[in-house]
Design a binder for these strands. Structure first.
Ligand SMILES: [Zn+2]
Ligand SMILES: [Zn+2]
Ligand SMILES: [Zn+2]
Ligand SMILES: [Zn+2]
Lengths: 131, 131
DNA sequence: CCCAAAGTGTTATAATATAACGTAAACAGT
DNA sequence: ACTGTTTACGTTATATTATAACACTTTGGG
């Protein structure tokens, strides 16, 4: 029996799901002020829970959060492709990625727990409209 | 002819080279106060320059900086293995990593510019001394 | 009912990073 | 040498991201 999400957790998750691009904690707070949320801890606490449930991901390189684009990849390892032109993000599950990570970890003699891979660049449409 | 580093840039780089673990901008500032540095921008500006020169790397997941462990990998793609027990970091250059990144980027239709890969876990010695 | 765990709302503060300003070297072209 | 341009400098102030701490409420099991 997995516990249902609380009101604040649902608010944050739904906002992330509806957003076209990654959101910072403070942009979420701004949007949720009309629903009664008032202070950063309310956002950060919901984010933390959603992270441990694997329902959202944090993009470390831009201090932002996105809803998981798969059903629930708590245990999986994902890579993120981030367009610096339009902020669009794709979450990529690649079978080789996990073995790649294990390989790098092994080289370093590290037992891996958690990893992030974030690739910045330009998507096709932004690449086309460059100066 | 590559321009020589400035005084502040050398101070920051040398401090990072001598450090046993990643340093935050503010820990660098703290250490460099005795050399006359007084304000964050002095540190951040040196860091930015050193980053573009490929002499240091930023670990996005811990908001910290490390000296490059290779001679100069401005163009290369590296992975970082970070021990959460002792903060030791290994910079791994793996031939497969670059192709892996290209693969993920291609899946997303992204022309890659810059990427980060950071693996957290426990090194052998910390793993051994677990509770 | 009672307890423990998890969540809530709130105020305050810590930690990370940049804007903006005026000045000073560094350097290439004339 | 004189210019203009670029880069770095030092400084003050502020923006952005994240957490500490406290008192209270809800939830669910024994
Ligand atoms: Zn996911
Ligand atoms: Zn784009
Ligand atoms: Zn390097
Ligand atoms: Zn360790």
């Amino acid at each position: 029996m997995s516990k249902p999400l609380t009101k604040n957790q649902i608010l944050v998750l739904d906002t992330l799901k509806a957003a076209p691009k990654p959101q910072t904690a403070y942009s979420l707070l701004e949007q949720l002020k009309e629903h009664g949320l008032k202070a950063p801890p309310q956002i950060y606490r919901a984010l933390e829970k959603l992270l441990t449930l694997g329902l959202i991901h944090k993009l470390e390189s831009i201090n932002s959060f996105v809803a998981c684009q798969h059903s629930d990849c708590a245990h999986q390892i994902a890579g993120f492709a981030i367009c610096d032109g339009c902020d669009q993000v794709s979450e990529i599950i690649d079978d080789n990625l996990e073995s790649q990570i294990r390989s790098v970890a092994k080289t370093a003699g590290l037992v891996p727990k958690k990893s992030t891979m974030e690739i910045h660049g330009l998507c096709r449409s932004c690449k086309g409209s460059e100066a």
